[in-house]
């Protein structure tokens, strides 16, 4: 069973929920993998404090000329849908940050002067945080493409036990790639106009991917925007509420888990676990599209 913790808006508490859910399950004896898929801003390690045993670089294939010159026909540049190749008189210039690694230019080139070379985007870190298997993708600063790193994380997942995927914010390709890997989505939101607006976008993303979603409302009391109507309209049941709590803020400031100090978080996690437990049987990966 793979559960993605996602949200449209950033900073609603995805990492708070994902790390604590992983711990709560591990404490109950469940084999748990926590995956930090927010590769542009990965923060799970600050709270779970894993020991990293291995760092695997993740690369994408980018074309390069294997001969010093070519006929300069420009066929590759015309064929490239991403404008990643510039044809000069006797060579091509590759703009790697625009390349999508589709491989078409290699097929197009009549002289076969192009070969693919790896370009590093970042790393996948793997280790353990106590009983939890920990995986995290970290995009190198300066690289633009987050999605291939998230795909690499998704391909490292096993079907055993429970996997908690801490997804990136938004509704475009990185968020989608993380949610795509899950059987069920927990959408974390907050009772503010921003929270409401972005929750509705996140629900649409889940729908486009054919994923079932639950809502968790965080920071109740800070912001008064009514959310119930939206939860009902989208068929996204509210399964847990967590109040705004200075104890959670203090733990976030220091990089500590907060469930020991925050009663409202403890209660919210229990609500979420109970709901997940109810659905455990009916939500086996096999029933998902």
């Amino acid at each position: 069973m793979k559960i993605a913790v996602a949200s449209g808006k950033g900073g609603t508490g995805k990492t708070l929920i994902a790390t604590h859910l992983a711990w709560a399950l591990a404490r109950a004896g469940e084999p748990v993998t926590y995956v930090d898929a927010d590769v542009e801003a990965p923060n799970g390690h600050l709270f779970l404090r894993p020991e990293i045993a291995e760092e695997r670089p993740v690369s994408v294939a980018v074309p390069a000329m294997v001969r010093p010159t070519c006929a300069g026909c420009g066929d590759c540049a015309r064929a490239c849908a991403f404008h990643a190749m510039l044809a000069a008189k006797d060579r091509v210039i590759v703009l790697p940050e625009l390349c999508h690694s589709c491989g078409l230019c290699l097929e197009i080139c009549p002289e076969r002067v192009l070969e693919e070379r790896p370009r590093r985007l970042g790393v996948v870190c793997e280790g353990r945080a106590g009983p939890i298997r920990f995986l995290s993708g970290v995009l190198d600063v300066g690289e633009a493409r987050a999605t291939p790193l998230i795909s690499a994380l998704a391909s490292s997942l096993s079907a055993e036990g429970t996997t908690i995927i801490d997804a990136p914010p938004g509704t475009s390709c990185p968020a989608m790639e993380a949610v795509r890997a899950a059987d069920l989505v927990v959408l974390v939101t907050e009772p503010t106009p921003f929270g409401l607006h972005d929750f509705e976008l996140a629900v649409q993303m889940c729908r486009a991917l054919g994923k079932r979603a639950y809502a968790v409302l965080n920071r109740v009391g800070l912001g008064q925007t009514p959310m119930d109507e939206a939860f009902a309209r989208h068929g996204t049941p509210l399964v847990a509420s967590i109040g705004f709590d200075a104890a959670i803020s203090a733990a976030s400031a220091e990089g500590r888990m907060a469930d020991e100090s925050s009663e409202t978080l403890k209660k919210g996690l229990l609500e979420l676990l109970l709901r997940l437990g109810e659905d455990w049987q009916s939500l086996s990966p096999a029933v998902n599209p």
Binding site: E40, A41, E97, V141, A144, P169
Partner: peptide, 9 residues
């Protein structure tokens, strides 16, 4: 946007 990837660039 949040992050350090493509739309931030």
């Amino acid at each position: 946007p949040p992050g350090i990837g493509c739309p931030v660039h």
